[in-house]
Design a binder for these strands. Structure first.
Length: 912
RNA sequence: GCCCGGGUGGCGAAAUCGGUAGACGCGGCGGACUUAAAAUCCGCUGUCCCCUCGUUGGGGCGUGCAGGUUCAAAUCCUGCCCCGGGCACCA
């Protein structure tokens, strides 16, 4: 048995050859060997953060899927761009540096080397010549360059698109634009600068941030859990105001939502993005404050209910609160409204202090119990001139709308609760449906108690109210979004330095493009100043940089470098562009390469985890649209087709204390699971280090093989579903590959068992059905059913002494995207030219793929009573006659049928 | 609470146009080969019932639950239950 299937030898041989031959290198337009007659396919995986743990078998399932598709597309004749790189800035390497003093660059480099080794061991067909990491200065140079473009751009409302700030200044100087009615020439230098800085897409702002002392950085809202802890590490997070870099993603809210229509993405991901953007149409309404010139501006989606507004609420942080505090409680102030305060000032101050103290978690848990306090002031409801009291309550959020609402308890459940608790009037302004028994009524119905709106339905009443508000100067139709601007600074070391200089008088200037990359300075230690002291002020790590880095002399003045770094999301916002032209040192990506690879629909297939449904994909789309507006890229959207692979789950086991124990060492004894003599409890979850249920790929490849892993992971079920890993099931794939080998190669002599005799008709038909089925599965990434078809074809070859070449040849081609190593080996042994990776994909003959006969089902009253083999093209008449002629059918028929439904060639249903 | 997915044999799953439910694989059972075992090969395997045990013997039931539409429903509709994911006082 010298020549039996030796997966280790075969897999190592072909991986070495692909590496040496650069088999999967793909050239750009203009390069030698480029073939413009071929269509392009850009097939991309979401690149990984190279963690110290390396890969387990659950990680690469998406990579295997995209690899199969890439290999298929090459065989279909496409120029395939299929690259891989590393998202290598980030916290773990830096935290390791804090603990050990090892430079994050060192950790990162060794982790990347390990990842590359592991990825190559899976036989993934990347063009490794295009590999880069986001931490490479040649790469982050352009990340910084894009930041400068954001800094130097604003959203021109006339164009509905980003334009260079320089154009804005030119039109201001030319008098084509003014600053809030003031000509540019009338403004001093400081005001001009403030105006411009306030319009930039990258701007500084004093905002409430999530400050995490343990990590020594602020975090974006998305990086904070609902419990008010850091997403990474689960550390406490505190709210505090801080001057931070922000990116004006909200300027793109509508385009980010609307352009989802242009892409082929899972509807669920589109829905998540639309939800996140949270567009809602409504109206701004101004409520004049009684006895004052001030007005409180509210946002409402229900302007039609304005007659039912019986009180107002401001968020505790609302800037107008201070000015609304009355000196004394007015007559009629209920005890509950005062919150125990002897005067409004005391009551409101106490309430605001309490609200500021509350953590996110407390606010969450107290949702059902509304709190608030009366300011002592009143508004005038503009539609009916009624005086309504103004409250401060934390159920109104400063971050949404205007931070103030008109409260309409009759049509809003939250307002109803508050009104009941505080004894405020409740007026219904929409007539509820007959039989309605709830509190607030949110449905449609005729307006009541609403003056000029009475009798109108909700839609008409909204329109009429807005018309009235606009005519009377009390408001206008408007749109509100949940999406907030993107908090872009971090106080960490291991990130891209933000390339901005601060002048002595507060002037900001971007680092010149020619001075990029702005390299990270070397520092002595990586420990943030604030890490051990929760009360210490947030200080960027780069504060530790040497002075000759921190300060720059320009025209005799000392400018300070920005000390914040970018968040990890930055590098992944545009890496797909760099892959089109990774070596370019003059531009982020050459136009010709960018236009070719990104042409039409951008990335043709982007595979990654659904956990990036919102953040990464929204941020990347935002940057892409800015670059598009500024003419640096050629498509409106970066990712034409998105696919989310599922996760690989695995049994995990916990001991009596709830601690996970190594799953591979758990033994089943009867119905119970034992680990080191102790009974453990089984659960299931995502494979990973924390659950101690990972399967190591290096060992798996030795024991079972790479092709086995690839086929098994594809065979487990649909690529998009999460499914449990079962090592026991792997044997089915191993048997398949061994059987395949024995069909082609005599295990004793090593002789090829291929004959030039043609196959019999049945086998040929089976082949063509297989080609048809596998080809159809490719485009939909339904590889699980393809593997089933391979089993069927393979099993049909077992009984033969030799496999007809016609079958053997096509089968190897079909198999090669999924099991490329064994396919290469068999291809070579059969005398195939070159690599099977570039062999033509087999075509099927429709006539051969079609069945000649089919089993027709005959039903009586919907129950199957007979099955008859009939020609596939049987006529309706013949089918009817065959069915009615069946003895078995006759036995179930008492008399003449009332009706006969004939659907040739599949079915006849006789209704008795 | 709202918005998405999803519930099919002992297990992973097929069936994506409303027309044979359970392809393919695992596991299980039986057989061949072998001194034996492994490997390999062959057969059976949703479930219950019946018989004159048949190389397509006959029948009932069956795709989370309860209804409905239809000649016909895993597939369409209504209500409900359960599981997973996202959002969550968003005015």
């Amino acid at each position: 048995m010298e020549h039996r299937y030796d997966h280790v030898a075969i897999e190592q041989k072909w991986q070495a050859r692909w590496d040496a031959d650069k088999t999967f290198r793909v050239v750009n337009p203009g390069d030698e060997g480029f073939d413009p007659s071929r269509p392009k396919q850009y097939i991309l995986d979401m690149f990984p953060y190279p963690s110290g743990e390396g890969l387990h078998v659950g990680h690469p399932i998406g990579y295997i899927g995209s690899d199969i598709f890439s290999r298929y597309m090459r065989m279909k004749g496409a120029n395939v761009l299929h690259p891989m790189g590393f998202d290598s800035f980030g916290l773990p390497a830096e935290q390791f540096a804090v603990e050990t003093g090892v430079h994050p660059r060192v950790t990162t480099e060794s982790n990347i080397a390990n990842y590359v080794r592991q990825l190559k061991a899976i036989g993934l067909s990347y063009d490794w010549d295009r590999e880069f990491a986001t931490t490479d200065p040649d790469y982050y140079r352009w990340t910084q360059w894009i930041f400068i473009r954001l800094f130097e751009a604003w959203l021109d409302p006339d164009a509905g698109a980003a334009r260079p700030i320089a154009q804005l200044i030119a039109s201001l100087e030319a008098g084509e634009r003014e600053v809030d009615g003031t000509p540019w020439s009338d403004l001093n230098e400081m005001d001009r600068r403030a105006h411009i800085d306030g319009l930039r897409l990258a701007y500084l702002d004093e905002v409430m941030v999530n400050w995490c002392p343990a990590l020594g950085t602020v975090l974006a809202n998305e990086e904070v859990t609902r419990e008010g802890r850091s997403d990474r590490g689960d550390h406490l997070v505190f709210q505090r105001p801080l001057r931070q870099w922000m990116l004006r993603i909200t300027a793109y809210s509508d385009r980010l939502a609307e352009d989802l229509d242009l892409v082929e993405w899972p509807e669920s991901v589109k829905a998540m993005q639309r939800n996140w953007i949270g567009r809602s149409e409504g109206s701004r309404i101004d409520f004049p404050v009684a006895g004052s010139d001030a007005r409180i501006e509210v946002f409402t989606t229900r302007p039609d209910t304005v007659f039912g507004a019986t009180y107002m609420v401001l968020a505790p942080e609302h800037p107008l609160v201070e000015s609304l505090i009355a000196d004394t409680w007015p007559d009629g102030t209920k005890e509950a409204w005062a919150g125990g305060g002897s005067d409004p000032s005391e009551a409101v101050s106490a309430y605001r202090a309490e609200a500021a103290r509350k953590s996110e978690l407390e606010r969450q848990t107290e949702v059902k119990d509304k709190t608030g306090v009366f300011t002592g002031s009143f508004c005038v409801n503009p539609v009916n001139d009624r005086l309504i009291p103004i409250f401060v309550a934390d159920y109104v959020l400063m971050g949404y709308g205007t931070g103030a609402i008109m409260a309409v308890p009759g049509q809003d459940e939250r307002d109803w609760e508050f009104a009941e608790k505080f004894g405020l009037p409740i007026v219904r302004t929409v007539q509820p449906e007959e039989g309605f028994e709830g509190n607030a009524y949110l449905g449609d119905g005729p307006a009541i108690n609403s003056g000029f709106l009475d009798g109108l339905g909700v839609v008409e009443a909204k329109a009429k109210t807005i018309e009235w508000l606009e005519a009377e100067g009390f408001g206008a139709a408007t749109v509100s979004y949940k999406l907030r601007d993107w908090l872009f600074s971090r106080q960490r070391y291991w990130g891209e330095p933000i390339p901005i200089l601060h002048g002595p008088d507060g002037e900001m200037r971007a680092v010149s493009d020619t001075d990029l990359p702005l390299l990270l300075p070397e520092v002595d230690n990586y420990r943030p100043a604030s890490m051990d002291d929760e009360d210490a002020d947030p200080a960027p790590m780069l504060f530790n940089a040497p002075d000759d880095w921190k300060y720059v002399e320009i025209d005799g003045e000392r400018w300070e470098r920005e000390l914040n770094t970018m968040p990890q999301w930055a590098g992944s916002c545009w890496y797909y562009l760099r892959f089109t032209d990774p070596g370019n040192d003059e531009y982020l990506a050459g136009s010709e390469a960018e236009q070719y690879w990104m042409g039409e629909r951008g990335v043709d297939l982007y595979i990654g985890g659904v956990e990036h449904a919102v953040l990464h994909l929204l941020y990347a789309r935002f940057w892409h649209k800015v670059l598009f507006d500024l003419g640096h890229v050629s498509t409106a959207e970066p990712f034409g087709r998105l696919f989310n692979q599922g996760y690989i789950l695995a049994d995990a086991f916990q001991d009596g204390r709830g601690v996970y124990v190594p799953a591979e060492k758990v033994e089943m004894v009867g119905d119970t699971f034992m680990y080191e003599g102790e009974e453990v409890v089984r659960s299931s979850g995502k494979m990973g280090k924390s659950k101690m249920n990972s399967v190591n790929p290096d060992e798996f490849f030795v024991d079972h093989g790479v092709d086995t892993l690839r086929l098994y992971e594809m065979f487990m079920g649909p690529l998009g579903d999460s499914k449990p890993w079962t090592t026991r099931d792997v044997v089915g794939i191993e048997r398949f590959l061994q059987r395949l080998w024995r069909n082609y190669v005599d295990p004793d002599s090593g002789e090829l068992l291929i004959t030039d005799e043609p196959p019999d008709e049945e086998l040929r038909k089976l082949l063509h059905r297989t080609i048809k089925s596998v080809t159809a599965d490719m485009l939909d990434l339904r590889f699980n059913t393809s593997v089933a078809r391979f089993f069927e074809l393979n099993n049909a070859l077992v009984a033969l002494d030799a496999v007809p070449r016609e079958i053997a040849d096509a089968f190897v081609r079909l198999l090669s995207p999924m099991a490329p190593h064994v396919a290469e080996e068999l291809w070579e042994r059969m005398g195939g030219q070159g690599s099977v990776c570039f062999a033509e994909w087999p075509e099927f003959d429709e006539a051969l793929a079609a069945e000649e006969t089919v089993t027709m089902v005959v039903q009586v009253g919907g129950k199957i009573r007979d099955r008859i083999e009939v020609p596939i093209d049987i006529s309706e008449d013949a089918a009817r006659r065959a069915a009615l002629g069946s003895e078995k059918v006759a036995a179930h028929l008492a008399g003449e049928p009332t009706r006969v439904i004939v659907r040739p060639p599949n079915l006849v249903n006789i209704v008795p």
